[in-house]
Nucleic acid binder design. Structure first.
Lengths: 223, 223
DNA sequence: CACCAATGTTAGATCACTCTAACATTTATC
DNA sequence: GATAAATGTTAGAGTGATCTAACATTGGTG
């Protein structure tokens, strides 16, 4: 999976497009991309055009954005880098899991394929990163996603956290405070439909925790 | 030492200008910079002008290139990053000392100050990188250079290698083959003035090694 | 179904970096 | 010290990324 000859903005775009389909299957929009990357929609529109010219995405004006096979390969390679780096930062350099995202975001464009391999070896080929996201293998297809979002869980059910979205460091710090992490066992207490609040009890703790939609949607669980 | 707001080309220029005065004291020229960085002289000329506009160097057209205090600080911070990264790659990721230069060259622009600190801590605050170059401290003045180049050494003298320039990986691989590294003890056998060859014997080996000027100038020694 | 709001695209600028080609200056040599 | 060679600078152009502002399209609502 060669990666080097792409600009780092191009790599960001591809990764973001791929990521949108990893957990949810709704296609990503120019507006959402712009917001995530922190640029104006016109910039993204422009960038997508360049990507299309390079055969990495297909996109007709006002149409949907789809990765080509080449685009998907690049994207998955970037996701692999990102997640290996996050794992590395936590395991080897002692980062907190709330600190790794931004660092990995920059590093993923700088490390060589050789370094990615060395990190993979040093970590003994990890299959999940510190947030529970699966690390795509160097060759072959990425692990299929499992589970569902906590805001979809039935009140009364018991679930295990498999993944927590790493997008928002503040939210991660909050989860850390609560003692909520991948592998945590939870009992879903109730959901107030109009308040959009999901209440859960972490096993081993003696009080309930109320989570808003954003927080509950960032947490993926299995029954 | 803030570094972030500078482009990575600007950082490269500053590091290169500083490096030129670390071992030799001859001022660097536009041509040499262009060659080292791998761009045309016109590009460097242009870049220097931008650096001057930012108050990082002083430079009048056709004149010499000098770092300002701000420029020097940035440069030293980059050198610190570079050398810590090289050490890290060798110590933690098992790189060969001939493989680290190019990787560090890219990474030095990507790692955060936090990561530099963590690496420094993990390595227990090393004072020299794998080639024997001193690692500038986070605060305070860099270690003064000691020693002289092997091509200046008197025939018959015994010397210890303190540093080997990391510029040329092929040369480093050659030195590795020879068993020549920082800390090696050598006896200088002879120098043929017009052949520009320095012959040395590595202690513990039973044959002499002939080194051309480029090689001998890349090796720094103390008596 | 017509219209408006939301969303996306294009146009026109700017900036950093790069090139080639032309021009200027410095230095080295005879 | 005049001239040629080496070195450095400027001019003009292209690319990618970004912006703002104007324009276009789509989709939902009355």
């Amino acid at each position: 999976m060669p990666v080097s000859e792409l600009s780092s903005t191009a790599q960001d775009y591809l990764k973001l497009i791929w990521s949108a389909t990893e957990w949810a299957d709704k296609p990503i929009t120019v507006g959402v991309m712009a917001e995530r990357i922190g640029v104006k929609p016109s910039t993204v529109s422009d960038g997508i055009k360049r990507l299309a010219a390079q055969g990495l995405v297909t996109h007709a004006p006002y149409g949907s954005i789809e990765l080509t096979e080449a685009g998907r390969e690049h994207a998955v390679a970037m996701v692999r880098r990102h997640r290996l780096l996050e794992t590395f930062l936590v395991e080897i350099l002692g980062y907190g899991w709330d600190e790794v995202h931004d660092e990995a975001e920059v590093l993923e464009h700088a490390v060589s394929d050789l370094m990615v391999d060395r990190i993979d070896r040093l970590l003994k080929h990890p299959s999940r990163d510190p947030h529970g996201d699966p690390i795509p293998p160097a060759v072959g297809t990425p692990a299929a996603t499992v589970g569902f979002q906590l805001d979809q869980a039935k009140p009364g059910s018991q679930v295990t956290v498999t993944r927590i979205s790493d997008e928002d460091p503040d939210m991660l710090r909050y989860f850390t405070e609560l003692g909520l992490a991948p592998e945590s066992r939870l009992t879903v207490r109730e959901r107030r439909p109009y308040a959009d609040v999901t209440t859960v009890r972490i096993h081993g703790q003696d009080s309930d925790i109320a989570l808003g939609t954003t927080a509950a949607a960032a947490i993926w669980v299995v029954a």
